[in-house]
């Protein structure tokens, strides 16, 4: 694990679905996870019920800051269906009527 000076806002929650903190995002960036998708896979940030709608831009901003690049250069994660959580019963039912 890389040594990283603790910052005042390290314990702020960034991803509220999976309780991932800003400190953890910063630690992952310092360990070399440099895309939103990589951070998502290792920490689950953005993998919860809201699918990253709340945290995605905050992680992008932190990446831009840490890597010293403009935010438009931060690669966006893959967007896959479904756009909102779906009940298992809906999946099981498929296109049926009831």
């Amino acid at each position: 694990m890389t040594d990283r000076p603790k910052r005042h806002d390290d314990d702020v929650i960034v991803c509220r679905c999976e309780d991932v903190t800003l400190g953890e995002i910063r630690r992952l960036i310092s360990e070399g996870y440099h895309t939103i998708d990589e951070i998502k896979r290792i920490s689950r940030a953005g993998m919860g019920q809201c699918q990253g709608r709340t945290c995605r831009h905050l992680i992008a901003r932190e990446l831009a800051r840490a890597l010293g690049v403009p935010q438009e250069e931060v690669e966006m994660p893959m967007f896959r269906p479904p756009t909102r959580p779906v009940l298992l019963s809906t999946i099981a039912r498929g296109e049926g009527d009831e």
Partner: peptide, 16 residues
């Protein structure tokens, strides 16, 4: 994960 209290936030079914 951390058992923090959560409430109403977005009102449009967007967040968790």
């Amino acid at each position: 994960v951390s058992g923090r209290a959560r409430g109403f936030f977005c009102a449009i079914g967007n967040c968790s």
